[in-house]
Design a protein around this nucleic acid. Sequence first.
DNA 1: CCCAAATGTAACGAATTCCTACAGGGCGGC
DNA 2: GCCGCCCTGTAGGAATTCGTTACATTTGGG
Lengths: 231, 231
Amino acid sequence: MSALVTILDDEPAIRQMLSDALAEAGFRTMSFGRATEFEAALRRTTPDVCLVDLGLPDRDGLTLVHRLALEQGATVIIISGRAQVQDRVTGLELGADDYIIKPFDPAEVVARIRARLRTRTRSAPSDTARFNGWTAHFDRYALEDETGEETTFSHAEGEVLRLFLESPKRLITRAHMQESLGGAAGESFDRAMDVRISRLRTKLREDPKNPRLIKTIYGAGYIFLGDVSWS
Amino acid sequence: MSALVTILDDEPAIRQMLSDALAEAGFRTMSFGRATEFEAALRRTTPDVCLVDLGLPDRDGLTLVHRLALEQGATVIIISGRAQVQDRVTGLELGADDYIIKPFDPAEVVARIRARLRTRTRSAPSDTARFNGWTAHFDRYALEDETGEETTFSHAEGEVLRLFLESPKRLITRAHMQESLGGAAGESFDRAMDVRISRLRTKLREDPKNPRLIKTIYGAGYIFLGDVSWS
DNA sequence: CCCAAATGTAACGAATTCCTACAGGGCGGC
DNA sequence: GCCGCCCTGTAGGAATTCGTTACATTTGGG
């Protein structure tokens, strides 16, 4: 599945240039001219990389970057006309993953996006994950208790569990789940997702009234809490 | 444990400048003037980040980067005097994580190294805030009593609480709230804000006649009193 | 003191999500 | 090929969230 890149810039010409270049490079794109529109979309889907222009009319760009990067754990690339070293340093310190100066060459933007996406896959070659007393063995579809007792999980359950374990403590939207798990969007497939998660919760012995590991965010998606370490 | 950063550059002055700046930033450093020395050291230790200059006398820099990044999985930042877009694109495509152009400011190098290191441990944003006996755990949507008892709060309530905790003892206007919380302005949305705050007050066990934490400023907005400390 | 505007809150309802069946389909055993 | 088991999506009702409405209460000006 191709990666989803969002573009947030108030100049239509730049949005167009970027979305053309990114589409040609094989990415899916979503463009926004204002921060409020962008934030509304964030509630529905989780982009892989966010391109953010700092000179926005309706919100302070740096605050937005900080919330995106540090609180939501998104991958953020700042695109800005402010070329001072100090601007770049503060942008990166606030959590941005990269800082590109206008005017830019679309080819470089594409290359830098690819560099960001590469790091994500580089750190998960493993098939066993530990979290909060549990151990998930993806190679043999088994979930191990803290006492060593094992239950098996199905393929569909494993897909959801892996998605959670790869992005712990980050919002995972329903749309992103469907994309990742190959679900044909729309329709009533999202109800199937409910059931998958419900079954996974049962296997993790979650208390329905007070789930500790898989938390529901009404209207947005889910968050997996729990300290994950792969090995 | 501080991160280990290696410096590979044939100019002693640049090596010195970098290692001084990195040491001051709290990194451990190792400097090399030639690729062969560097490769010998690689057999003994694994650096967290490798700074590599492309203009090396004894080896083609790009080949070295390619081997380091893609085959060995190291984190590589190219530092180069070659400023053409095409140079940057090929460097990044070959597996480099970043590309810094000479002449550079050491502060930016430090910021970019930190950005690379951050991606490795991005899984635990752990944002909690303490105020007047309460502890708000935003990661698991829980509000903790001074006795340790926990109540959960919803996503909408959390947005309001976060807004308050980010600007304590300062007037927060209704307009600012709506803007921050993605509310489509106008209409009767402001009553929704009232209700959110009302529900939040209930969870904070505020006395309606005499609120101690969330104070209403008639005709203006709200002020959150309370000594907030984030961690 | 009176009134209009602003704010608090309980109650309702739409939207969303959870969960318990139930049905279709794949796969292995016989 | 037939049977039964397990996996997985679908359906519908229960439960939760949260905005809206309606009405009570408070505030501040005259």
